[in-house]
Amino acid sequence: MELNTKEIDYQQQLRGRDFLTLADYSKDELIYLLELADYLKKQQKAGKLEQPLKGKTLGMIFEKSSTRTRVSFEVGIYQLGGTGLFLSTNDIQIGRGEPVADTAQVLSGYLDGIMIRTYSQSVVEELAAKASIPVINGLTDTYHPCQVLADLQTIRETKGSLRGVKLAYIGDGNNMAHSLMLGGATMGMEIHIAAPEGYQPDAGITETAKSIAKYHGGKVNITEEPEVAVQQADVIYTDVWASMGQENEQKIRERAFAGFQVNKGLYSLARKDAVFMHCLPAHRGEEVTAEIIDGKQSVIYQQSENRLHAQKALMAALMG
């Protein structure tokens, strides 16, 4: 891959950085990552694998189980020429009470990067503070930045650009809502979140996203009315009503989200060419009907595949 001066500047700027939340990255930095993801995807489709991470090793700490995160990172680091090491918290000492600081410094002596998928954002932040190698947030209860990086790539592919695109997120104001607000705001999008009372996004994160949106010419709006959020939307997005660790709240949440299902009636209020997105796994018949998620407007498998390409770009930029 031949680089121009601007690309070299971004490589130097991003090398060694952590990826904890999208709020830490500028618009130009995200655009660079998205363009790199597009390039790596194009190369792979052409049977040409770029391998800038030969001899590098990524440690992947999983406190929360996963399909897409594990497979995309493990395949991604392999395709980049490196090695992925799966580290379940059942198998390493952090799961038995070893201080996060000790784990961070020990792993820094063995690895070239760490991806962690866990519950608490504070654990990721402490790991990053004590490690001397890049730390990537694979998911916490607060943020899911890797998913949204792939989502932004998918929206660019389907809509041609990001600026001015209206995305309506219907459902729980969770980690997905938080990262969609931050990433979308940075790219000048309109992000409308429809969630019932008591399940709306964190107020502090919402204010941060609104401030970012104002600077970049975007918009962030929170409502309790799905019908308002989806009016003339270009993208409709939803997530499960009860995330991992909230299974005991399932029945309560089903009642709270009863009017928030993405179905044909709600979808009819969006633009005719609106695409449907879901971070998966999905519960058909709950947050979305089968005719929507399995319909021609759905791009869920395209966005799932883009986890691989977006995360390859991220690893190449931070660990390269």
Rank of each mutant, 00 (worst) to 15 (best):
N175W: 13
L111I: 03
M1W: 11
M244D: 03
A209T: 01
V124Q: 09
G59C: 04
L167H: 07
E190Y: 11
N248E: 14
S108V: 05
L162M: 12
Q303W: 03
H144L: 09
G138F: 07
G59H: 04
C146Y: 00
H309Y: 15
K27P: 08
V220Q: 12
Q44P: 00
K130R: 10
Q11S: 05
M1Y: 12
Y25L: 15
E287C: 11
E305P: 01
Q302I: 05
M277V: 08
A270D: 10
G188T: 11
R15H: 14
C279R: 03
T118D: 04
T158H: 11
P145C: 00
Q246E: 15
D28L: 12
M189I: 02
A185K: 07
L152M: 10
L180N: 07
I116C: 03
S268Y: 04
A37I: 01
A150C: 10
Q200M: 11
D18H: 15
Q200K: 11
A209D: 09
V235L: 01
G16V: 13
G109S: 10
E207H: 06
M277E: 01
R17D: 02
I252A: 14
A104D: 07
G95L: 04
M277L: 13
L127E: 03
E305M: 06
E2K: 13
L318D: 13
G47R: 11
L308E: 00
E35D: 15
T223R: 01
F257R: 12
I252W: 05
L280G: 04
L53Y: 07
Y119G: 02
A213W: 01
I8N: 05
I133P: 11
G183Y: 06
A128P: 10
D18W: 06
V240R: 12
V75R: 01
Q79D: 07
G217E: 05
A23R: 14
L149M: 13
G113F: 01
E197H: 11
K159C: 09
E157G: 04
M115I: 13
T118I: 13
C146A: 09
D151M: 06
E249C: 11
V123I: 15
I222F: 00
H309L: 09
H278M: 02
G295W: 07
D234Y: 05
Q303M: 09
Y301R: 04
T154Y: 03
Q79I: 01
K166W: 12
E7W: 08
R68H: 04
L149V: 07
G173A: 07
L40R: 00
V75G: 00
K45M: 12
G265Y: 02
G81E: 11
F260H: 08
V240N: 09
Q79H: 14
